[in-house]
């Protein structure tokens, strides 16, 4: 026989639903609910409502961010100074160029200014986009999925290490049932080319690992997940290197592979 207990207040009920109660107060409500069908039904309904709310907008998190939001830029004096400096240099270039008839010099200058402007946009979203696009382009490729096949593994490792300017080896995913198909070099940022390794399981399901140096100092991140259509990507940044694993696998499968790659490629 239990003592009659005070009824549950609205606030307490809310805190219970949101998991904000201390264990003993939570227990009290759970006990009460066992003997009170109406309370139990209310709790069930509120929990379902909370979950439905969350689920209803889950997909927004993995939608590609619209360009107009990425374009909102800081009104930076610093940026203006840099543009002004760049323009001054173009002027110098043109003057020198016309004086000495060095047409080439002025053209060369304006190209690097354009690149400098592109490079001011945040690199991480661009990195993830590039990785996903690289998967979308090469994973369905039948005849030339890679530039250098796994038969020439040593040459592949040496070549990509040289071009990316760091030592690396194609990660081994055989324990997960994926064998290396090969790899390729890809254009990405100025002076920051990217490497892509491709893997395949027995059913022909493909995964790609994409990595490059970040174009700007970028804070390190934990594993992050993004889905674009059918393609899922886990990505992370470590010591200014970006890594992305893309494929059309379930999230847990992909995560497992991402962990293995993380262990193997850490600098």
């Amino acid at each position: 026989m239990t003592k009659p207990q005070a009824p549950i207040g609205d606030d307490e009920l809310m805190a219970f639903i949101d998991g904000a109660l201390s264990p003993d107060r939570r227990c009290r409500i759970e006990q009460l609910a066992r003997h009170d069908d109406e309370l139990a039904a209310t709790i069930t309904a509120l929990r379902a409502q909370r979950k439905a709310l969350r689920d209803s907008l889950d997909s927004v998190l993995v939608e590609p961010i619209p360009q107009r939001l990425l374009r909102v830029a800081p009104p930076s004096r610093y940026a203006l100074q840099r543009v002004a400096a760049a323009m001054a240099w173009i002027a110098v270039g043109i003057t020198v160029g016309s004086l000495a008839s060095w047409q080439y010099l002025s053209r060369h200058d304006s190209t690097s200014t354009e690149l400098a402007l592109v490079n001011r946009a945040p690199d991480l979203p661009r990195f993830v986009h590039q990785a996903t696009v690289a998967y979308a382009v090469f994973a369905p490729e039948v005849r030339h999925p890679v530039e250098l096949g796994s038969a020439e593994l040593q040459a592949l490792n040496a070549w990509l290490s040289g071009r990316l300017g760091r030592h690396m080896r194609a990660p081994d995913l055989s324990s997960l049932g994926f064998s290396l198909v090969g790899g390729r070099l890809l254009p990405a940022e100025t002076n920051k080319p990217a490497a892509q390794f491709m893997y395949e399981d027995r059913q022909g399901q493909r995964l790609t690992v994409y990595l490059r140096g970040m174009a700007q100092p970028t804070p390190e991140t934990a594993f992050r997940y993004v889905g674009e259509g059918e393609i899922s990507t886990f990505y992370w940044v470590e010591r200014n290197w970006g890594y992305a694993l893309s494929g059309e696998l379930s999230r847990p499968q992909l995560l497992q592979a991402a962990r293995s790659i993380y262990d193997q490629l850490s600098t």
Binding site: V60, L61, I65, L69, P74, S76, Y78, L124, P219
Partner: peptide, 26 residues
């Protein structure tokens, strides 16, 4: 500043979700 804008960009998905809920899904 670059770092700051980078950190803001990271928050965009969450802000879009909140905004989507506030506008009833529009």
């Amino acid at each position: 500043m670059t770092l700051f804008s980078h950190r803001i960009t990271e928050q965009i998905p969450g802000l879009r979700r909140y905004a989507r809920a506030l506008t009833g899904g529009n």
